[in-house]
Design a protein around this nucleic acid. Structure first.
Ligand SMILES: [Mn+2]
Ligand SMILES: [Mn+2]
Ligand SMILES: [Zn+2]
Ligand SMILES: [Zn+2]
Lengths: 126, 126
DNA sequence: TTATTTTTGCGACTGAGTTGCATTAATTGT
DNA sequence: ACAATTAATGCAACTCAGTCGCAAAAATAA
Protein backbone atom coordinates (compact mmCIF):
# COMPACT_ATOMS: atom_id res chain seq x y z
CA UNK A 1 0.00 0.00 0.00
CA UNK A 2 0.95 3.66 0.14
CA UNK A 3 0.24 6.69 -1.98
CA UNK A 4 -0.65 6.23 -5.61
CA UNK A 5 1.80 8.08 -7.80
CA UNK A 6 0.67 10.17 -10.68
CA UNK A 7 3.08 8.88 -13.29
CA UNK A 8 3.22 9.64 -16.98
CA UNK A 9 1.74 6.24 -17.79
CA UNK A 10 -1.09 6.62 -15.30
CA UNK A 11 -1.95 9.96 -16.85
CA UNK A 12 -2.04 8.47 -20.34
CA UNK A 13 -4.38 5.68 -19.26
CA UNK A 14 -6.58 8.08 -17.34
CA UNK A 15 -6.78 10.46 -20.28
CA UNK A 16 -7.93 7.62 -22.51
CA UNK A 17 -10.78 6.71 -20.17
CA UNK A 18 -11.85 10.34 -20.07
CA UNK A 19 -11.88 10.59 -23.85
CA UNK A 20 -13.61 7.39 -24.87
CA UNK A 21 -17.10 6.73 -23.69
CA UNK A 22 -17.29 3.07 -24.51
CA UNK A 23 -15.53 0.30 -22.63
CA UNK A 24 -12.25 -1.05 -23.89
CA UNK A 25 -10.70 -4.49 -23.90
CA UNK A 26 -7.31 -5.15 -22.45
CA UNK A 27 -6.01 -6.35 -25.80
CA UNK A 28 -6.94 -3.06 -27.43
CA UNK A 29 -5.35 -1.18 -24.55
CA UNK A 30 -2.09 -3.04 -24.91
CA UNK A 31 -2.19 -2.38 -28.65
CA UNK A 32 -3.06 1.29 -28.16
CA UNK A 33 -0.20 1.95 -25.76
CA UNK A 34 2.28 -0.18 -27.63
CA UNK A 35 5.58 1.70 -27.62
CA UNK A 36 4.46 4.03 -24.85
CA UNK A 37 4.37 1.60 -21.98
CA UNK A 38 4.89 -2.03 -21.18
CA UNK A 39 2.15 -4.65 -21.11
CA UNK A 40 2.76 -5.38 -17.43
CA UNK A 41 2.52 -1.71 -16.65
CA UNK A 42 -0.89 -1.47 -18.28
CA UNK A 43 -2.23 -4.42 -16.31
CA UNK A 44 -0.82 -2.99 -13.11
CA UNK A 45 -2.23 0.47 -13.72
CA UNK A 46 -5.67 -0.95 -14.48
CA UNK A 47 -5.54 -2.94 -11.24
CA UNK A 48 -4.71 0.17 -9.30
CA UNK A 49 -7.33 2.33 -11.01
CA UNK A 50 -9.92 -0.33 -10.24
CA UNK A 51 -8.86 -0.48 -6.58
CA UNK A 52 -9.37 3.26 -6.38
CA UNK A 53 -12.83 3.08 -7.93
CA UNK A 54 -11.87 5.03 -11.03
CA UNK A 55 -12.52 2.20 -13.49
CA UNK A 56 -14.45 -1.03 -13.29
CA UNK A 57 -13.85 -4.29 -15.11
CA UNK A 58 -15.92 -7.08 -16.55
CA UNK A 59 -15.48 -9.98 -18.94
CA UNK A 60 -16.53 -9.79 -22.57
CA UNK A 61 -18.20 -12.59 -24.45
CA UNK A 62 -14.82 -14.16 -25.17
CA UNK A 63 -13.80 -14.07 -21.53
CA UNK A 64 -11.36 -11.23 -22.08
CA UNK A 65 -11.15 -8.45 -19.54
CA UNK A 66 -12.67 -5.09 -20.38
CA UNK A 67 -12.52 -1.79 -18.55
CA UNK A 68 -14.65 1.33 -18.39
CA UNK A 69 -14.70 4.53 -16.38
CA UNK A 70 -16.59 4.53 -13.12
CA UNK A 71 -19.20 7.04 -12.03
CA UNK A 72 -19.67 7.76 -8.35
CA UNK A 73 -17.43 4.92 -7.18
CA UNK A 74 -14.79 5.26 -4.51
CA UNK A 75 -11.89 3.30 -3.09
CA UNK A 76 -14.21 1.74 -0.54
CA UNK A 77 -17.05 0.68 -2.82
CA UNK A 78 -18.05 0.11 -6.40
CA UNK A 79 -21.60 1.38 -6.67
CA UNK A 80 -22.25 1.60 -10.39
CA UNK A 81 -23.30 -1.96 -11.12
CA UNK A 82 -24.88 -2.32 -14.55
CA UNK A 83 -25.06 -4.62 -17.57
CA UNK A 84 -22.68 -4.44 -20.49
CA UNK A 85 -23.35 -4.72 -24.18
CA UNK A 86 -21.07 -6.18 -26.82
CA UNK A 87 -21.77 -5.84 -30.54
CA UNK A 88 -21.15 -9.11 -32.31
CA UNK A 89 -20.58 -7.29 -35.59
CA UNK A 90 -18.09 -4.51 -34.82
CA UNK A 91 -16.97 -5.72 -31.40
CA UNK A 92 -17.77 -2.48 -29.59
CA UNK A 93 -18.37 -2.86 -25.86
CA UNK A 94 -20.43 -0.47 -23.78
CA UNK A 95 -21.85 0.09 -20.33
CA UNK A 96 -25.64 -0.04 -20.19
CA UNK A 97 -27.67 2.18 -17.89
CA UNK A 98 -30.22 -0.28 -16.63
CA UNK A 99 -30.87 -1.67 -13.21
CA UNK A 100 -30.27 -5.41 -13.07
CA UNK A 101 -33.05 -7.26 -11.33
CA UNK A 102 -31.43 -9.90 -9.17
CA UNK A 103 -33.53 -13.04 -8.72
CA UNK A 104 -33.95 -14.43 -5.22
CA UNK A 105 -32.88 -18.03 -4.97
CA UNK A 106 -34.09 -20.18 -2.09
CA UNK A 107 -31.32 -20.98 0.38
CA UNK A 108 -28.70 -19.03 -1.56
CA UNK A 109 -27.29 -15.62 -0.86
CA UNK A 110 -26.61 -13.73 -4.06
CA UNK A 111 -24.02 -11.04 -3.69
CA UNK A 112 -23.39 -10.00 -7.25
CA UNK A 113 -24.91 -10.22 -10.70
CA UNK A 114 -23.12 -9.77 -14.00
CA UNK A 115 -25.22 -9.35 -17.09
CA UNK A 116 -23.66 -9.39 -20.52
CA UNK A 117 -25.86 -8.53 -23.48
CA UNK A 118 -24.81 -9.36 -27.00
CA UNK A 119 -26.33 -8.27 -30.28
CA UNK A 120 -26.02 -5.55 -32.89
CA UNK A 121 -25.27 -1.93 -32.09
CA UNK A 122 -26.97 1.13 -33.60
CA UNK A 123 -24.09 1.76 -36.03
CA UNK A 124 -24.08 -1.81 -37.33
CA UNK A 125 -27.89 -1.91 -37.58
CA UNK A 126 -27.98 1.08 -39.94
CA UNK B 1 -19.13 -32.97 -41.01
CA UNK B 2 -20.55 -36.45 -40.93
CA UNK B 3 -21.85 -38.81 -38.34
CA UNK B 4 -20.97 -38.36 -34.72
CA UNK B 5 -19.33 -41.50 -33.38
CA UNK B 6 -20.18 -42.95 -30.04
CA UNK B 7 -16.69 -43.52 -28.78
CA UNK B 8 -15.53 -44.74 -25.38
CA UNK B 9 -14.49 -41.20 -24.45
CA UNK B 10 -17.77 -39.67 -25.56
CA UNK B 11 -19.63 -42.19 -23.40
CA UNK B 12 -17.51 -41.34 -20.39
CA UNK B 13 -18.16 -37.62 -20.77
CA UNK B 14 -21.85 -38.18 -21.39
CA UNK B 15 -22.14 -40.42 -18.34
CA UNK B 16 -20.60 -37.73 -16.20
CA UNK B 17 -23.13 -35.13 -17.31
CA UNK B 18 -25.94 -37.56 -16.56
CA UNK B 19 -24.62 -38.22 -13.06
CA UNK B 20 -23.79 -34.76 -11.84
CA UNK B 21 -26.50 -32.18 -11.65
CA UNK B 22 -24.34 -29.13 -11.26
CA UNK B 23 -22.26 -27.54 -13.99
CA UNK B 24 -18.59 -28.34 -14.27
CA UNK B 25 -15.57 -26.32 -15.26
CA UNK B 26 -13.25 -27.43 -18.00
CA UNK B 27 -10.32 -27.54 -15.58
CA UNK B 28 -12.17 -30.01 -13.35
CA UNK B 29 -13.12 -32.05 -16.39
CA UNK B 30 -9.53 -32.30 -17.56
CA UNK B 31 -8.51 -33.27 -14.02
CA UNK B 32 -11.34 -35.79 -13.68
CA UNK B 33 -10.49 -37.59 -16.93
CA UNK B 34 -6.76 -37.37 -16.43
CA UNK B 35 -5.31 -40.71 -17.54
CA UNK B 36 -8.49 -41.70 -19.36
CA UNK B 37 -8.36 -39.28 -22.22
CA UNK B 38 -6.32 -36.44 -23.59
CA UNK B 39 -6.96 -32.78 -22.85
CA UNK B 40 -7.57 -32.04 -26.55
CA UNK B 41 -10.04 -34.88 -26.74
CA UNK B 42 -12.06 -33.44 -23.89
CA UNK B 43 -12.22 -30.00 -25.49
CA UNK B 44 -13.21 -31.55 -28.80
CA UNK B 45 -15.89 -33.75 -27.29
CA UNK B 46 -17.37 -30.80 -25.41
CA UNK B 47 -17.48 -28.81 -28.64
CA UNK B 48 -19.32 -31.60 -30.38
CA UNK B 49 -21.76 -32.19 -27.55
CA UNK B 50 -22.54 -28.49 -27.55
CA UNK B 51 -23.10 -28.50 -31.32
CA UNK B 52 -25.57 -31.31 -30.89
CA UNK B 53 -27.45 -29.48 -28.15
CA UNK B 54 -26.59 -32.00 -25.45
CA UNK B 55 -24.60 -29.60 -23.29
CA UNK B 56 -24.34 -25.85 -23.09
CA UNK B 57 -21.42 -23.70 -22.04
CA UNK B 58 -20.90 -20.43 -20.24
CA UNK B 59 -18.07 -18.56 -18.57
CA UNK B 60 -17.55 -18.61 -14.84
CA UNK B 61 -16.55 -15.60 -12.80
CA UNK B 62 -12.90 -16.18 -13.63
CA UNK B 63 -13.62 -16.38 -17.36
CA UNK B 64 -13.11 -20.14 -17.45
CA UNK B 65 -15.45 -22.22 -19.53
CA UNK B 66 -18.08 -24.31 -17.78
CA UNK B 67 -20.47 -26.91 -19.12
CA UNK B 68 -23.81 -28.34 -18.07
CA UNK B 69 -26.35 -30.73 -19.52
CA UNK B 70 -29.04 -29.31 -21.77
CA UNK B 71 -32.76 -29.85 -21.45
CA UNK B 72 -34.93 -29.73 -24.55
CA UNK B 73 -32.18 -28.45 -26.82
CA UNK B 74 -31.42 -29.81 -30.26
CA UNK B 75 -28.75 -29.57 -32.91
CA UNK B 76 -30.63 -26.70 -34.51
CA UNK B 77 -31.27 -24.56 -31.45
CA UNK B 78 -30.33 -24.00 -27.85
CA UNK B 79 -33.56 -23.17 -26.08
CA UNK B 80 -32.71 -23.47 -22.41
CA UNK B 81 -31.28 -20.04 -21.75
CA UNK B 82 -30.95 -19.31 -18.05
CA UNK B 83 -28.67 -17.66 -15.50
CA UNK B 84 -25.85 -19.47 -13.72
CA UNK B 85 -24.76 -19.33 -10.14
CA UNK B 86 -21.25 -19.66 -8.78
CA UNK B 87 -20.51 -20.04 -5.08
CA UNK B 88 -17.58 -17.86 -4.10
CA UNK B 89 -16.87 -20.08 -1.10
CA UNK B 90 -16.84 -23.63 -2.45
CA UNK B 91 -16.66 -22.82 -6.14
CA UNK B 92 -19.72 -24.86 -7.09
CA UNK B 93 -21.40 -23.76 -10.31
CA UNK B 94 -25.05 -24.39 -11.14
CA UNK B 95 -27.75 -23.68 -13.66
CA UNK B 96 -30.55 -21.50 -12.33
CA UNK B 97 -34.17 -21.96 -13.38
CA UNK B 98 -35.23 -18.40 -13.82
CA UNK B 99 -36.27 -16.45 -16.86
CA UNK B 100 -33.86 -13.66 -17.69
CA UNK B 101 -35.61 -10.40 -18.40
CA UNK B 102 -33.82 -8.82 -21.32
CA UNK B 103 -33.85 -5.02 -21.29
CA UNK B 104 -34.76 -3.21 -24.49
CA UNK B 105 -32.12 -0.77 -25.59
CA UNK B 106 -32.97 2.00 -28.00
CA UNK B 107 -31.44 1.46 -31.44
CA UNK B 108 -29.79 -1.80 -30.44
CA UNK B 109 -30.86 -5.34 -31.22
CA UNK B 110 -30.12 -7.65 -28.32
CA UNK B 111 -29.79 -11.26 -29.34
CA UNK B 112 -28.50 -12.87 -26.22
CA UNK B 113 -28.19 -12.28 -22.49
CA UNK B 114 -25.81 -14.02 -20.13
CA UNK B 115 -26.40 -13.60 -16.43
CA UNK B 116 -23.88 -14.83 -13.91
CA UNK B 117 -24.84 -14.72 -10.25
CA UNK B 118 -22.23 -15.03 -7.54
CA UNK B 119 -22.70 -15.51 -3.83
CA UNK B 120 -22.92 -18.24 -1.24
CA UNK B 121 -24.62 -21.57 -1.84
CA UNK B 122 -26.97 -23.40 0.56
CA UNK B 123 -24.22 -25.76 1.75
CA UNK B 124 -21.78 -22.97 2.50
CA UNK B 125 -24.46 -20.85 4.21
CA UNK B 126 -25.24 -23.56 6.77
C1' DT C 1 19.70 17.61 -2.81
C1' DT C 2 19.36 13.29 -0.73
C1' DA C 3 16.77 9.47 1.01
C1' DT C 4 12.77 6.64 0.60
C1' DT C 5 9.27 4.24 -1.64
C1' DT C 6 6.57 3.33 -5.70
C1' DT C 7 6.46 2.26 -10.46
C1' DT C 8 8.32 0.58 -14.60
C1' DG C 9 10.65 -2.46 -18.17
C1' DC C 10 12.12 -6.63 -19.21
C1' DG C 11 12.10 -11.36 -19.74
C1' DA C 12 10.72 -15.50 -18.22
C1' DC C 13 6.92 -17.88 -16.93
C1' DT C 14 1.87 -19.94 -16.28
C1' DG C 15 -2.23 -22.04 -17.77
C1' DA C 16 -6.32 -22.42 -20.82
C1' DG C 17 -7.25 -23.42 -25.16
C1' DT C 18 -5.88 -24.69 -30.21
C1' DT C 19 -3.78 -27.13 -34.14
C1' DG C 20 -1.42 -30.36 -37.46
C1' DC C 21 -0.52 -34.77 -38.20
C1' DA C 22 0.12 -39.63 -37.78
C1' DT C 23 -2.30 -43.43 -35.53
C1' DT C 24 -6.37 -45.70 -33.82
C1' DA C 25 -11.06 -46.81 -33.46
C1' DA C 26 -15.90 -46.65 -35.05
C1' DT C 27 -18.99 -47.13 -38.77
C1' DT C 28 -20.48 -48.57 -43.47
C1' DG C 29 -20.76 -51.69 -47.24
C1' DT C 30 -20.21 -56.31 -49.09
C1' DA D 1 -16.79 -61.51 -40.69
C1' DC D 2 -13.85 -58.63 -43.28
C1' DA D 3 -12.06 -54.77 -45.75
C1' DA D 4 -12.70 -49.93 -46.88
C1' DT D 5 -13.87 -45.53 -45.31
C1' DT D 6 -14.00 -41.76 -42.34
C1' DA D 7 -14.19 -39.78 -37.75
C1' DA D 8 -11.87 -39.47 -33.31
C1' DT D 9 -7.78 -39.64 -30.57
C1' DG D 10 -2.93 -38.85 -28.67
C1' DC D 11 0.79 -36.23 -28.76
C1' DA D 12 3.62 -32.44 -28.96
C1' DA D 13 4.16 -28.03 -30.25
C1' DC D 14 2.00 -23.84 -30.28
C1' DT D 15 -0.84 -19.30 -29.10
C1' DC D 16 -2.08 -15.74 -26.22
C1' DA D 17 -3.81 -13.32 -21.94
C1' DG D 18 -2.18 -12.58 -17.78
C1' DT D 19 1.46 -12.88 -13.86
C1' DC D 20 5.95 -12.43 -11.40
C1' DG D 21 10.69 -11.40 -9.71
C1' DC D 22 14.04 -8.28 -9.94
C1' DA D 23 17.00 -4.52 -11.12
C1' DA D 24 16.63 0.24 -12.88
C1' DA D 25 14.04 4.51 -13.10
C1' DA D 26 10.82 7.92 -11.59
C1' DA D 27 8.06 10.17 -8.10
C1' DT D 28 7.44 11.83 -3.56
C1' DA D 29 9.06 13.10 1.13
C1' DA D 30 12.60 14.91 4.13
MN1 LIG E 1 -19.62 -0.57 -17.12
MN1 LIG F 1 -27.00 -23.94 -17.56
ZN1 LIG G 1 -21.50 -2.68 -33.89
ZN1 LIG H 1 -20.72 -23.25 -1.76
Amino acid sequence: MGVVRNTKSVKLVNDLFNEIHSAIGVVELVEKFNGQMNKSTIYRILDRLEDEGRVHSFLGVNGLKHYAKCHDCSKSEHVDIHPHFQCTTCGKVECVSYEIKIPRLSNKKIEQAQLLLTGTCEVCLA
